[in-house]
Design a protein around this nucleic acid. Structure first.
Lengths: 186, 186
DNA sequence: GACACTTTGTACCTATCGGTACATGATGTA
DNA sequence: TACATCATGTACCGATAGGTACAAAGTGTC
């Protein structure tokens, strides 16, 4: 029997493959095995091949962050509630995805050349939204540095937690950042 | 004319190739072009092939950090001088190496499986040495978290500075960490 | 149930992958 | 200067890379 898939499901499956193998390490046959999709399906959904797949994956992840992280940071509730919600969302997101941020991982390799624009956009939008929330909460001049430090701190925590294979390092680092954010407000 | 190289020079050249292309992205022919060494030389110096090259590179970098960062953190001068020296050394090191920490980059990809042990060793030794210096300087119970936060913070700053292609983000982040370290001492 | 359209598996292509073999050239030591 | 040792370039290998072509099978619409 032949199972039929839609593109949006394929994107999610391919994202998992990239998280596991990296961009260069994800050969088409590795993607095939990981996702259960044959070459026919992959090249049907992504006519541009591997680069097309990666673009679609980055788009999907970027859209998710836009809707679930950046937008809420700008609009809903008090500043401290918005910032707490950001940490909660991000913690749950990466915890369920092997502690891999594809944008961060791509930034460290030569993939940065190919996908520089979406990578830049992802981090710039994140820092911008967080800075706004911090500013709204009365963080004043510190908002700028604090926003970059927190986004950077999350990336560093992902690296270290993976390196030492200890997820509690990730949770601990986020807890301390949450606490620091709250002291900046009030 | 034939130019003759020694292994230690080859290791440094190969390291540059891995920084530029990543482990999976560094094909033998790419390494050949980047380093100027032919296959004959490469497989003479590194009989085990690519994995052998990476092991040698990680060994070299690990030894450099041991001698230039961890040891000084444990021995020479006052705690604040030792910690300042660490930040200076690390800042100069990564600035002159395209803002790539090979251990961090490998930790984010599937290379982690292959090189898990040296990766773990690198970060554990770093955190340990820094914690000791902070403790010596009177940081008390905070020394533990501060040490992991700083090592993690450096990794995050590398990611973010590369992602936004803005080296000043790296310098700025390190300046703030230096300042924070000093407030923990005294 | 006919028909257009999308999804899927398979066979096949060329280029490049990592790696080996080995003759030739350079180097240091006696 | 003879000789052992180490470094180097080149030719070659099978396996796999990413990608194409296309016929068969599913799916939605009327």
């Amino acid at each position: 029997m032949r199972t039929v898939t839609e593109r949006s499901d394929a994107v999610l499956a391919v994202a998992t493959a990239f998280r596991r193998f990296g961009y260069e390490g994800a050969s088409i046959s590795a993607i095939t095995e990981q996702t259960g999709l044959g070459k026919g399906s992959l090249y049907n959904f992504f006519p541009g091949g591997k680069e097309d797949m990666a673009t679609a994956v980055l788009d999907e992840v970027g859209a998710w962050f836009q809707a679930e992280v950046y937008e809420p940071l700008l609009h809903e509730g008090t500043a401290s509630a918005r910032i707490t919600a950001m940490f909660d969302a991000v913690e749950a997101y990466f915890t369920s995805r092997q502690l891999v941020c594809l944008f961060g991982a791509f930034a460290l390799g030569q993939e940065r050349t190919r996908f520089g624009e979406p990578i830049q956009q992802y981090f710039a939008a994140w820092i911008d939204a967080l800075r706004t929330a911090l500013h709204d909460g009365g963080a004043g001049r510190e908002a700028d540095d604090a926003a970059t430090d927190m986004v950077s701190g999350i990336q560093g925590a992902l690296v270290l937690a993976r390196a030492l294979d200890d997820i509690s390092l990730f949770h601990g680092a986020l807890d301390r950042m949450r606490a620091r954010a709250l002291t900046l407000l009030d």
